[in-house]
């Protein structure tokens, strides 16, 4: 619940030591890296640039927080967490690159990962774009299909009779189980991937839509009918908008599943994409690349989630103030 997130930190007047401590933690991470030489020679500039940039950004925000109360609250709230991140970075750097205690190649240091990401940025970017394209096609078609299926099942008795059992039985099968089928039937690994992501997002969206339609208050339909609406108008102007919150619940569930299916499908037989990249890097025991790809995934998928949340907020603007969000 939102009102709990601030805890004891947010909104407190006066001086909080945590923001300067967080900046200090990143300064230590940077200083430690500069002062202590690595076990094996490596280009440390990209890592230093990154840590230095983060420290500068935090310092900038901290400076701004003296003028803007909103920024102050946010900076103070996040400061403890960032202080911990800075210390963790320092410890990780010391134990890996600087002391060589973590076994290689499986546990590289942050320096190695950042350097590999810089050196291989073209391939990483290409893979990211491939993954995003596959995700977009599969997720969009699966979601649209899911909404249509859900509406048909929720709306029509005939469709409900024939389609609902299929949805219930086929939907719970993990999409990746269809990989052999997809590879045998479809001409390319790309289409196989689209197919798998589509069916894995189809199920939760269809189910949520069906349930959403089933739980609409009858009085809305009655009101619409007494106002002269026919079935088609009711579907478009009552059933679908009333179900929109449920549809988005299904979409949220589908997003996580789709990310998983996306990576697995790319690991099997694809020629590009982040999943392929990880598999390929693993083949060369280039674990720094594996971690770099994972870091990119974390960033990109977070961005996709943020985008979906933004769309959801726009579509469900009418709900603001009604729900606990």
């Amino acid at each position: 619940m939102r009102h709990e997130t601030g805890g004891d930190v947010r909104g407190k007047k006066g001086f909080s030591p945590w923001p300067p401590l967080a900046i200090l933690a990143f300064a230590f991470a940077l200083g430690g890296n500069i002062l202590i030489p690595p076990v094996r020679a490596i280009n440390e500039t990209p890592y230093r640039t990154l840590v230095g940039f983060i420290a500068l950004y935090m310092a900038g925000r901290y400076g701004l927080s003296f003028f803007r109360p909103g920024v102050k609250a946010a900076v103070e709230f996040k400061a403890r967490f960032f202080a911990a991140v800075g210390i963790a970075l320092l410890a990780w750097d010391m134990l890996s690159t600087k002391a060589g205690i973590f076994p290689l190649p499986f546990f590289p240091g942050p320096v190695q990962i950042v350097e590999v990401a810089r050196a291989d940025w073209r391939e990483l970017l290409r893979s990211t774009l491939y993954s995003l394209r596959l995700f977009a096609y599969g997720f969009a078609s699966g979601t649209v299909l899911g909404v249509v299926t859900g509406i048909l099942i929720g709306w029509s008795r005939q469709w409900n009779y024939w389609l609902f059992p299929v949805l219930k039985v086929c939907g719970i099968v993990p999409a990746v189980a269809w990989i052999p089928f997809g590879m045998a039937v479809f001409p390319s690994s790309f289409i196989t991937g689209v197919f798998m992501i589509a069916i894995c997002s189809w199920f939760p969206v269809a189910l949520a839509t069906t349930n959403g339609i089933a739980s609409i208050q009858i009085s809305y339909f009655e009101a619409a009918r007494t106002l002269g609406a026919d079935d088609r108008f009711i579907l478009r102007h009552v059933a679908i908008p009333a179900t929109a919150p449920s549809i988005f619940t299904g979409v949220s569930a589908a997003t996580g599943l789709s990310f998983c299916t996306l990576i697995v499908s790319e690991m099997v037989g694809a020629e590009a994409g982040l999943g392929w990249y990880i598999n390929w890097a693993k083949g060369w025991s280039a674990y720094s690349k594996v971690y770099a790809a994972i870091a990119v995934m974390a960033l990109v998928f977070s961005a996709v989630l943020a985008l979906l949340n933004f769309v959801r907020g726009k579509v469900l603007a009418w709900q603001s103030g009604l729900t606990n969000e």
């Binding site: 009085s219 809305y220 009655e222 009101a223 619409a224 007494t226 106002l227 102007h237 009552v238 908008p241 009333a242 929109a244 009418w318 709900q319 009604l322």
Partner: peptide, 12 residues
Amino acid sequence: GYVFQQANLFPW
């Protein structure tokens, strides 16, 4: 025309 006990307006 029918008016319900609760206003029953469409919330969306």
